[in-house]
């Protein structure tokens, strides 16, 4: 079965991860722009980060037969540095216009400050301007109020819940998010957030409609194989193939496909990967054998 991981921070992952992900059936990933574990201090760092997401990381993924897409946005933590945030907002449009940018994200609230609210709203307006979906990061602290407030603000700005993914849900938030028509994503972490086992229970209870599984793997303890592993556990637990397909592939394609930038044909047509740029410590395949890999239609 093919999988999509619609939330993973590949800049923090190794080439082993890429190889394992490919072997496990992941055909496409979406990398949301986020913070780097520590705050950036100038706008140039953002510019280079965004251009890395659409440049080097896109290329790196292609070398392993995985299609790489991204979302662009100013994350809520760094929105609190207002002087910097102003400059970052200025450069967002030029990146939102780029091919393969499938949403504005991940945006939303962290501490739910006034500054966070201001730049969240500005970016919702950018989503409307560029006709892009929105990927929402829900806060870990005061999650209930943060999630409800996020949805209120989105609706205030006249954005359809059908174009919005609310991520990092739990057993509580999923009810409100689904009742209001949003796509509910679940981050499967080995220790925190949501576990594979709890995820299976959620799918058993709510079915697969507008529910999405992702790994949000980054520089912390996380697992880039969360999506295929959760799919395997679902299968073992008697969840239907249709529900697995929807939660681990199709739903992500449907919501982010609304951008016009995320098309199944991108990875279903034959991909030739020329791993030619190796040798002498030059790039990603140091010391390994040069090879050209042909991936025929993986279905």
């Amino acid at each position: 079965m093919n999988y999509i991981d619609p939330h993973i921070h590949m800049v923090s992952r190794t080439t082993d991860d890429y190889e394992n992900m490919k072997a496990a059936g992941i055909v496409a990933v979406i990398e949301p722009a986020f913070w780097l574990g520590q705050a950036r201090t100038n706008v140039g760092s953002f510019k280079d980060y965004f251009s890395m997401l659409v440049g080097w990381e896109r290329f790196r993924a292609s070398q392993f037969g995985i299609k790489h897409y991204c979302t662009i946005g100013l994350n809520s933590k760094e929105a609190n540095n207002e002087a910097l945030a102003e400059q970052v907002i200025e450069i967002l449009p030029e990146f939102l216009a780029k091919e393969g940018v499938v949403a504005v994200g991940e945006i939303g609230y962290d501490d739910q400050t006034t500054a966070e609210d201001k730049y969240f709203r500005q970016q919702l307006e950018l989503a409307k301007e560029f006709d892009l979906p929105v990927m929402i990061h829900t806060p870990h602290r005061d999650k209930k109020n943060g999630t409800l407030r996020t949805m209120d603000v989105i609706e205030e700005h006249g954005i359809s819940p059908y174009k919005v993914v609310i991520d990092h849900n739990n057993e509580e938030t999923v009810e409100w998010v689904r009742d209001r028509g949003y796509w509910a994503a679940f981050t499967i972490y080995p220790k925190t957030k949501m576990s594979k086992k709890r995820m299976v229970e959620i799918v058993k209870k709510y079915g697969s409609e507008q529910i999405i599984v992702d790994s949000s793997a980054d520089w912390g303890v996380s697992d880039p194989l969360s999506v295929p592993k959760t799919a395997a556990l679902m299968k073992k637990s008697g969840v239907s193939d249709k529900d697995i397909h929807l939660t681990c592939y199709q739903n992500a394609l449907t919501i982010y496909g609304q951008s016009g930038q995320f098309n199944e044909s991108d990875w279903l047509t034959e991909t030739t990967i020329n791993q030619a740029d190796l040798h002498e410590g030059n790039t990603i395949l140091r010391g390994q054998e040069a090879k050209t890999i042909h991936f025929k239609n993986p279905k």
């Binding site: 965004f50 251009s51 659409v54 440049g55 290329f59 450069i91 780029k98 091919e99």
Partner: peptide, 9 residues
């Protein structure tokens, strides 16, 4: 050039 994605470059 400083902000161009792969195909743009």
């Amino acid at each position: 050039f400083e902000i161009a994605e792969m195909k743009e470059q």
